[in-house]
């Protein structure tokens, strides 16, 4: 993996809110087709780092490169244009719309009749089936039903499909995707993460749950106090190592965290 160019590099990212230094010289490397988990305590800087990446916040200083090329990310739009998509915890779906219309919300394909642009609902449907199959790896029971009748995992699949559909997707950011799900749904969602990676998309996964992190991630980046506390491979490191990095000391794995 070391001989490859990272698909995403963040170098020396700083971000302060007033006197609070939320991010201090943070680096991040994401390899192609890799799942990188970001873990850390509340206030460790996970969310701020992701918000910088997705253009919600602008970094005070630092550099972001996509596939080796420096990019400027000062807005959501610029982040999306750079090929970064985010799936938030609340998924951001319009539950009264069916899946294809959610997937293409804001980027609807158009068919002109007498020069008037009409939404091409049939194309949306066909392309959604294709995206779900080729890039997400699921099929939905009923594409024409509003997504409110879907399970948590299915809604997650729609949200991912939407992230994939919009851009020439290079990095998929998933913010606490398993936080509100039951065991079965969680398993499905972790499978979704694997499926997306298997189809060539690099994933950044933010999670509180080390079980889930170790189940899907290739590497784990630990944040502490606004700094990068360390990066470990899930093949060589243990949960105990990661916990130690999170709290900043060696700990017993039995200790209650």
């Amino acid at each position: 993996m070391t001989d490859q160019t990272p698909i995403l590099q963040m170098r020396g990212i700083n971000k302060s809110f007033g006197g609070l230094r939320a991010l201090i010289d943070v680096d991040l490397d994401l390899m192609p087709a890799e799942v990188l988990a970001i873990v850390g305590d509340n206030g460790a800087g996970k969310s701020t780092l992701i918000k910088v990446l997705t253009g919600v916040h602008t970094a005070d200083s630092g550099e972001i490169r996509i596939a080796g090329r420096p990019v400027s990310i000062r807005s959501r739009r610029e982040s999306m244009d750079a090929g970064i998509a985010a799936v938030y915890q609340n998924l951001g779906l319009v539950d009264t719309l069916p899946a294809p219309q959610n997937v293409f919300l804001g980027i609807e394909p158009i068919r002109r009749i007498l020069g008037i642009p009409f939404l091409d609902n049939a194309a949306m449907r066909a392309r959604t089936v294709e995206i779900l199959r080729n890039r997400v790896g699921v099929s939905l029971p009923d594409l024409d039903a509003p997504t409110r009748s879907f399970s948590g995992g299915q809604r997650q699949a729609v949200a991912i499909a939407r992230a994939v559909a919009g851009t020439d997707l290079k990095v998929l950011v998933m913010d606490e995707p398993t936080a509100a799900l039951g065991p079965e749904e969680t398993r499905n969602t972790l499978n979704l993460v694997r499926a997306v990676r298997a189809r060539g998309t690099a994933v950044i996964l933010i999670s509180h749950n080390l079980h889930h992190v170790f189940a899907v991630a290739d590497r784990v980046q630990v944040m502490r106090g606004g700094r990068r506390a360390g990066v470990v491979s899930t093949r060589t490191a243990t949960r105990k190592d990661v916990l130690g990095l999170i709290v900043g000391a060696d700990v017993d794995e039995d200790a209650h965290v």
Partner: peptide, 30 residues
């Protein structure tokens, strides 16, 4: 739908395949 099912099995090779993809979903609206 069957194609989707195949794709699902294919991609989860190596990982534990989900027992029931639709588990927990609310029943279909008639």
């Amino acid at each position: 739908m069957s194609e989707g099912g195949q794709a699902m099995t294919e991609m989860t090779a190596g990982a534990a395949p989900p027992r029931d993809r639709n588990a927990g979903r609310m029943r279909q609206l008639s």
